[in-house]
Design a protein around this nucleic acid. Sequence first.
DNA 1: AAGTGGTCTAGACCACTTA
DNA 2: AAGTGGTCTAGACCACTTC
Lengths: 253, 253
Amino acid sequence: MGTTQLETVPEPKYWHLRTVLSEALDSEFSVGEILPNERDLAARFGVARATLRQALEQLELEGRLQRRRGVGTTVAPPRMGVSVGTTQHAWPGGPHDAWQTLDCAPEVPPAAVAETLVTGRDEPVHVVRRSRVSHGQPVAAELLYIPADSVPDLSGIDAPAGTARARAVLRELQRLELERQENAVELGSARADDARELDRLPGAPVLVVTTRFIARGRTAALSVATYRADTCRLTFGDSGGVEIHHGPERRAS
Amino acid sequence: MGTTQLETVPEPKYWHLRTVLSEALDSEFSVGEILPNERDLAARFGVARATLRQALEQLELEGRLQRRRGVGTTVAPPRMGVSVGTTQHAWPGGPHDAWQTLDCAPEVPPAAVAETLVTGRDEPVHVVRRSRVSHGQPVAAELLYIPADSVPDLSGIDAPAGTARARAVLRELQRLELERQENAVELGSARADDARELDRLPGAPVLVVTTRFIARGRTAALSVATYRADTCRLTFGDSGGVEIHHGPERRAS
DNA sequence: AAGTGGTCTAGACCACTTA
DNA sequence: AAGTGGTCTAGACCACTTC
């Protein structure tokens, strides 16, 4: 009984550290500023480096910090608003499209994708790669799976692959009448190739946006877009790019 | 020159482990099955426990595994589709609402919220807490911030707080004409209170859905909903709850 | 070459669940 | 009490960037 009810739930050190650091970021650091290195910070707080890193990982996940190997840890700017699925009822590659078409190649899609498209297993589809850049940095990488019978008339195109073919495929796609599209967002981790394109390490957290484009009662195309979770806030619905960020204003120390 | 181009980019152990385990999950485990404990698994793969845990963390982030302290690690079912922002142009608490109203209390909102609502700092607003359950488990916790002047006529209500008041506030809100709503999704980590409600540990990854309800040209209400990122796939737009999951079918060994 | 973050180890102890 | 995942330590080495 003599024990007053302090610390009923002892908070993990890394969680407490996260809070302390978060407040320090709000009050004593400005965007872009470099933090002391991990070894110094760990020593300053009297914890092992691994524990400090756990706290930094949390803050990076929340988009507060940016860490670059060989460089250092900097205070991240507020996440940028990236609009997704606002252009309802529009095919990819249309007039107001935020994406840059890279290339195209025939490929056998993963089983889950083949299941959604009605194609049989081991049947190759057109795979168009696109990337999305915002405010000068890459924010998303996309794979567009398009079954052969969604774009039946590719006769005029010689190239079996490459940017030219990609554009041709998208142009053909426009000719179908789009009934509707279905969107979903979930958390994932960047595969090696996506990571490279997004300038991140493999396993970095990403928001995966899956879009089914439906025409003639069937899935005419399937888009799987991987967005950097650390730098992006996805906006959808009627929205534009409204700024809602957490925490008070950052000011210089 | 004698060196053949093997291992140009030496893959981290934990990443390789993740791949191996992921394939094992596809081929040798069925949903709900319990994996060997971490110490055994680490020994089996000849790595330190910390390294194995890094791989497990990845798989948990991807929604493939579920870990519970004191219990063990099990194979997670495919993520459930949870529809978000489909009921466009509808106030919270309307007829086809998936949320359960918990309670309501006056509170001074965080600075970022106060900024979005036009209220001054230190001015309390109604804060309605709601929770969302799907397939028998909690999937989201919500805080609804409603400025006093969005619900001017609360005269008939005695209770200063509690469920009754929460319902009254939502009922009053219906009387405004909703112009539109703006949605955004971003990655976050669960605060202590959200974590408790979602049956997770603090810091667990969550998808934060922010919705601005706009009426009379102003933000009449602001919803901040935290969804479990491990178990949920958010669907929006025209979508229903279509099932697209990664990897082949899971079957029993 | 120096300095940074990223990976990895081998151990210890703690919090929680179950029996 | 036994077994699980969660936290934490003190150290080592590696990959990368910058000077």
